[in-house]
């Protein structure tokens, strides 16, 4: 005997993600989820972006989810903003952050006194795209050392994001990398994507990125 079920396998996660968005609305903060491959420069990007936001009196916090060490959390904590470290396994760990780990992390903060909360997701272009974290804004970071075809290989990631940051443009003179081809490929997947090129190392492009992030509040 066959019985019809028709149940989404991510229903539990999606429901929690909805709860998180309700909390964000009630408490008046914006949740920004940053995703990329390992080594694209998510932490360095936050180290540039957060002081720029602090200068504009925007109160930030970070949920740090990159696996294995607390090294990233320590880098973020040096900026004197609240950090919640999601404890993943020391060896391996999970490939993404689900809404069920974001919710308790949020409760570690004084939500009333925050404007923007960043999630530094696990370095991976596949799984994090699949699991809704409850974020209001999704950002994908791709660096110039990664190859122009990344958007075509990971279309879901580039569909779920509203902002694409092309990082490490300071390395362009040393690379055979065509930034225009990358932009064309991003637009093939998501014609509405806001694209910003920058270098988290030199700070180039961060005025534009800061404005874009503020505009999403």
């Amino acid at each position: 005997m066959k019985i019809q079920i028709v149940r989404d396998v991510l229903e539990a996660n999606d429901q929690l993600a909805g709860d998180i968005r309700n909390i964000a609305k009630k408490e008046g903060f914006t949740l920004v989820n940053i995703m990329s491959s390992p080594g694209s420069g998510k932490t360095t990007l936050l180290e540039r972006l957060i002081p720029a936001l602090t200068n504009k009196e925007i109160r930030t916090a970070v949920i740090e989810g990159d696996i294995t060490t607390t090294a990233d959390a320590e880098r973020i904590a040096r900026m004197n903003i609240p950090v919640a470290q999601i404890n993943t396994e020391s060896f391996g760990g999970d490939c993404h952050l689900g809404a069920e780990v974001i919710l308790p992390a949020l409760h570690q903060f004084d939500l009333n006194n925050l404007d923007l909360i960043f999630i530094e997701n696990v370095g991976n272009l596949v799984c994090p795209a699949e699991f809704d974290t409850g974020a209001n804004v999704n950002i994908v970071v791709i660096s110039t050392t990664e190859g122009e075809d990344k958007p075509l290989k990971y279309p879901l990631m580039f569909r779920v994001c509203q902002i694409a940051v092309i990082n490490k443009i300071d390395l362009l003179p040393h690379l055979r990398f065509d930034i225009q081809i990358l932009e064309e490929n991003i637009r093939k997947i998501n014609p509405m994507m806001k694209i910003v090129s920058c270098s988290a190392q030199t700070g180039e492009g961060f005025d534009q990125l800061t404005k874009l992030v503020i505009a999403k509040r």
Binding site: I3, I5, V6, D8
Partner: peptide, 10 residues
């Protein structure tokens, strides 16, 4: 991304 149905053995 969903489970459509399940079938029990008779």
């Amino acid at each position: 991304l969903y489970i459509d149905s399940i079938e029990f053995s008779d």
